[in-house]
């Protein structure tokens, strides 16, 4: 039950992009076409899930076990950078199609705040191993959802008559604001 709550909360109620502002850079940069948003979304979900598992192990079996909490940020970010590199190499070797679809997005993921954010939130909330992985998958799907909705709107926006100074990033942010407002409606979905 707890696990389902964590999942729904990460996808809808506390959506990483729209309520924690994590992963805004790709949200604004990549969300111009639906196809590229879907690819980016899945690349991020994949890395999020993996890093949720690995950072949990590091946090519990190294940082807490050896009582060196102050190395948390340094070790998390190194692991994430290495993980992204490894995933990129692995995909390049094994699947050409997958690499073509995700390839260019992978290097961007290291500095995607969502990955480190997930590791930090997971550690802060002291989730169990399974809960942390579910949290990772949920956060990834929530990110994908927000990205795809945004891309859908922006494709239509090409035809709209936006006031000159608001063109580009400004109108994207305002739309994101309206989306965030809509997502707040999910808040009542979960009650304690």
């Amino acid at each position: 039950m707890e696990v389902i709550l964590i999942f729904i909360s990460a996808v809808l109620v506390n959506n990483f992009v729209l309520s924690y502002f994590l992963g805004i850079c790709p949200f604004i940069g990549v969300s111009e076409r639906i196809e590229s948003s879907v690819s980016m979304g899945f690349a991020v979900t994949f890395v999020l899930t993996l890093s949720a598992a690995i950072t949990w192990l590091i946090n519990n079996y190294i940082l807490i076990a050896f009582n060196v909490p102050f190395l948390q940020y340094v070790s998390f970010i190194i692991v994430i950078a290495a993980l992204v590199q490894f995933v990129e190499m692995f995909i390049r070797k094994t699947s050409k199609t997958l690499y073509d679809a995700l390839g260019i997005y992978l290097p961007l993921i290291t500095t995607n705040c969502a990955i480190l954010g997930l590791a930090l939130f997971g550690a802060l909330r002291a989730y169990s191993f399974i809960e942390n992985i579910v949290f990772g998958i949920g956060a990834g799907l929530g990110f994908t959802l927000a990205l795809v909705i945004m891309a859908g709107i922006r494709e239509e926006l090409d035809l709209a008559d936006v006031p000159e100074p608001l063109k580009g990033a400004a109108i994207t942010l305002i739309i994101a604001g309206l989306l965030a407002l809509a997502f707040m409606g999910f808040a009542g979905l979960i009650s304690v």
Partner: peptide, 18 residues
């Protein structure tokens, strides 16, 4: 709330552009 953050920043960008 989050929506206010997005919208304020969006409008700020618009002001700077104009």
């Amino acid at each position: 709330l989050p929506p206010g953050a997005f919208i304020t920043l969006g409008l700020l960008l618009g002001v700077k552009n104009s």
